[in-house]
Design a protein around this nucleic acid. Structure first.
Lengths: 135, 135
DNA sequence: TTCTCTGCAAAAGCTTTGCAACATC
DNA sequence: GATGTTGCAAAGCTTTTGCAGAGAA
C-alpha cells in the first residue's frame, strides 16, 4: 500500500496522520494478515527505525478502537491483530502459529442462546484448533 | 470433594498423589468452575498455606495433559482452567470476567471446513463475547 | 501556546525456570 | 539411593505506563 493510500485511510478513519501511523497501516493493512504487535513493530522498524515499541502497541489499540483491525485471542503468549474486520472465523495451528481465515459463509453457528437481559452481543469467536497429524 | 475422593481421582488418572495435588483437585474439581491459576493458588493456600505458586501452575499444566481440566484462552490477561472437559462452548463478559458454559446441544457449529491433509482436529472453541448493554 | 504524539525506560502482571531441599518408593 | 516433587526466588515475555521532549495546529 502506498503512503498516500495509507494517509487517506487514516483520514477517513478520523485518525490524525503521523509517519509512524502511516507505516503501521502499511504493515497491517496492505494485505490480509495476522500479525502480533511485535511483528508489526519489526516491520515498521524496517522503514522507520526510530519507532518505539510503545508507539506500535498504543497505535494498534487505537486502530482497534477505530475498527481498522481486530484483536484475536487465540494464543496465551500474545495478542494477534487481524486486518480483516468483517465477520469470519479462524483455524489455528498452535504448533507453528499459523492462522487461517474461515469465511462466515462456509461456517455457521446455530442455536445461539438468548442473552440474559442487559447483555449485548459483541462478537462470536470460533477457533478451530488443529495439529499436525500424529498417527 | 473429600480428600479420599480426590486421591482416588488422581490414582485413576495415573498421577502420583501428593498433598498439593489433592488440594488442587479439590479446588478445581469439586464443582463445575472456571478458575485462573492464581485463583486456584489462593484457594489451595487456605488449606495448605505452604503451597507455592509454581507448584500450582505446574500441576495445572500436568492436569491439562492428563485431561482432568481444560485450558481456556478467552482473555489476554490470563489463562482460565475449566473443570468441564467435555465438548461445550462459552459465553464471556470481559467487563466482569464472568464465564458461562453453553452446552453443545444448544449451540452447534455447522459447515466445518475439511482440514488440509496432515492436519488433525484438536478442538473447536466458540466464545460468545458480550457486554453490558450500553444504550 | 496548547494539545497530541513519540521514545525511552521502567513497571506491571502472568507464567516458567533453576536449584537445592525434601519425600517417597 | 534414585526418582520425582516442592518452595523460593529470579528470570522471561508481552504489554502498559510515566515522563520529558518533539511536533503540529
Amino acid at each position: 500500500m502506498s503512503i498516500s493510500q495509507a494517509t487517506e485511510l487514516l483520514r477517513t478513519a478520523g485518525i490524525p496522520v503521523t509517519q509512524q501511523r502511516v507505516e503501521i497501516v502499511r504493515a497491517m493493512l496492505s494485505f490480509p494478515t495476522h500479525l502480533s504487535a511485535d511483528q508489526v513493530f519489526a516491520r515498521v522498524r524496517q522503514s522507520v527505525p526510530e519507532t518505539s515499541r510503545a508507539t506500535v502497541y498504543n497505535t494498534l489499540k487505537l486502530f482497534r478502537e477505530k475498527k481498522l483491525v481486530r484483536e484475536l485471542i487465540v494464543d496465551p503468549e500474545r495478542l494477534v491483530y487481524d486486518s480483516n474486520t468483517s465477520p469470519h472465523y479462524h483455524l489455528y495451528n498452535a504448533e507453528n502459529g499459523q492462522l487461517t481465515d474461515v469465511s462466515a459463509d462456509e461456517l455457521q453457528v446455530i442455536g445461539m442462546p438468548s442473552l440474559p437481559p442487559g447483555l449485548q452481543l459483541e462478537e462470536v469467536d470460533v477457533i478451530i484448533r488443529v495439529r499436525t497429524r500424529s498417527g
